[in-house]
């Protein structure tokens, strides 16, 4: 039997939550970034599930766009994290404390 739409949505909801909680609790910039990728991929799963459900290709098209954007974000984001690491010798976000009230 093919899994139902609801089970895909539940799985993507759980993955999204894991990702969001991870971003909040992780203190390592790379780890946070990986959690964001997890969130994006759970969104992709949602899109594909709905696309299949409606027999409509728009959702799949959207997934391609999200994947392309995630790749760009990875390129830029890792560059930013490396620039931070060069000056701080750390990727811990708690060290990013120069700008505060």
């Amino acid at each position: 039997m093919e899994p139902s739409l609801a089970s895909y949505l539940a799985l993507s909801g759980i993955l999204f939550t894991i990702g969001a909680v991870g971003v909040i609790y992780k203190r390592n910039a790379i780890g946070m970034f990986m959690c964001i990728e997890l969130m994006l991929n759970s969104v992709n799963l949602t899109f594909v599930a709905f696309s299949r459900y409606y027999a409509d290709t728009t959702g799949q098209l959207f997934v391609f766009m999200v994947m392309a954007v995630a790749a760009c974000e990875a390129a830029v984001g890792l560059g930013i994290i490396i620039a931070f690491f060069r000056n701080r010798i750390s990727v811990d976000v708690d060290d990013a404390s120069l700008l505060k009230n």
């Binding site: 910039a29 970034f33 999200v66 700008l99």
Partner: peptide, 21 residues
Amino acid sequence: SNESAMKYFILGSFASAFLLY
């Protein structure tokens, strides 16, 4: 400037993920 970019990047993509969902 490093710190600003990193905060903007992480929180910005976090918000984008919500928007996308």
